[in-house]
Design a protein around this nucleic acid. Structure first.
Lengths: 140, 140
DNA sequence: CATATTTTTGCTGCATCGCAACAAAAATAT
DNA sequence: ATATTTTTGTTGCGATGCAGCAAAAATATG
C-alpha cells in the first residue's frame, strides 16, 4: 500500500479513493476476486459502485503492475512482488481452497524466453498459471 | 482428424458429428476461435446450433486433449501435438495477426515443475500463454 | 429382439463478465 | 479565472458460459 502510493507518486499517477479501495480489497483477500465480488466487498454499508467503475480501477492497477489478472479464473489478485528485474510471475492456483501463490522465477523466465525466441517470437506479456493442489490442502 | 478418431476409439469415446464438426472448424482455422465464432462457422447453410451445444462439444474435446483453451482470449484452438510425454504446451499469441503458435518444450516443463514443487505445489494443468509479435508480422 | 440404462443432444432460460458512449465532476495546467 | 485533461457516474448492452429439464440416440442386458 505504501509501495503503491510511492510508485504512483513517482509516475504522477493518481491513486484515487476508488482505486485505493479496490487495491485494498484485493490485498486483503487470500484468493483472487472477480470484478463483481469486488463490487460486493465495496458495497458494505455504502452504495454499490457500477461494474464499469471497478473495471476502470482494475485497468489502472493492472497498467501500473499493482495487481495481476488470473485469466483462467476471470479474477484479480494484488501483486506481492516487484517485477523490476527479469523475473516472471508464476501463479500456483489451488483447486481446493482457491488460494493463489505467486512465485517469481528467473529460471522460468529465461527458459520461456529461449523457447519463444527460438520460434522467432518477440514476447511481451507472459501468462503462466498452474492449477493444482497447494501444500496445505495436500496435507489434509 | 485421423488421430482424433483413433484416440476416441481407443478410449471408447464417441466422436459424434457435432464434436467432429467443431474439431474440424478449429483445425481449419489458423487462429483461435471463440465459441460464438464456431457457432457462426457451423451455421453455414444449416441451422445455427445453440451455444450450449458447442460448449458441450468443446468440453469433450478439451477433456480428450484434442483442443486447447486460450484463457487470455476466451478462445479455442485445435491441438497440433500429442502431449504423451512430459512436454508442456507453450502458446505464442501474435498481437497483430492473432495467430497462435504451439511450442512444446521439455525444458520449460521441467523448470516450471521445479518452481512449482519447490513451493510445495502439486501441479495439474499448466497454462502458458505469451503475447507478442510473431516472426512473420515482425518482418512486415 | 425387446427393454433398461447410459450417453448425447435440443431447448429455454439465465447468470456472469466486460465494456461502449455520453455527460458530469474533479483535478491540473495556462 | 479559464481552458484542458483526467476521472467518475449513469445507462445500456454485447459477449461469454452454463444450469435444468426433456427428447433422442447409442449401448448394455436379460
Amino acid at each position: 500500500m505504501v509501495y503503491a502510493e510511492a510508485l504512483c507518486a513517482e509516475r504522477s499517477q493518481r491513486l484515487t479513493p476508488i482505486r485505493r479501495r479496490v487495491l485494498e480489497v484485493l490485498a486483503g483477500s487470500h484468493k483472487p476476486l472477480g470484478a463483481y465480488e469486488i463490487i460486493d466487498e465495496l458495497a458494505e454499508g455504502k452504495t454499490k459502485p457500477a461494474p464499469i467503475t471497478v473495471y476502470r480501477a482494475l485497468d489502472f492497477l493492472l497498467e501500473n503492475g499493482l495487481i495481476h489478472r488470473i485469466e483462467s479464473r476471470n479474477a484479480f489478485i494484488a501483486c506481492i512482488h516487484r517485477h523490476d528485474f527479469g523475473t516472471m510471475a508464476v501463479f500456483l492456483i489451488c483447486d481446493r481452497c482457491g488460494a493463489v501463490g505467486e512465485a517469481a522465477s528467473a529460471a522460468v523466465a529465461s527458459t520461456l524466453m529461449n523457447a519463444a525466441n527460438s520460434a522467432g517470437f518477440t514476447p511481451k506479456t507472459p501468462v503462466i498459471e498452474i492449477s493444482g493442489v497447494c501444500s496445505h490442502c495436500r496435507s489434509l
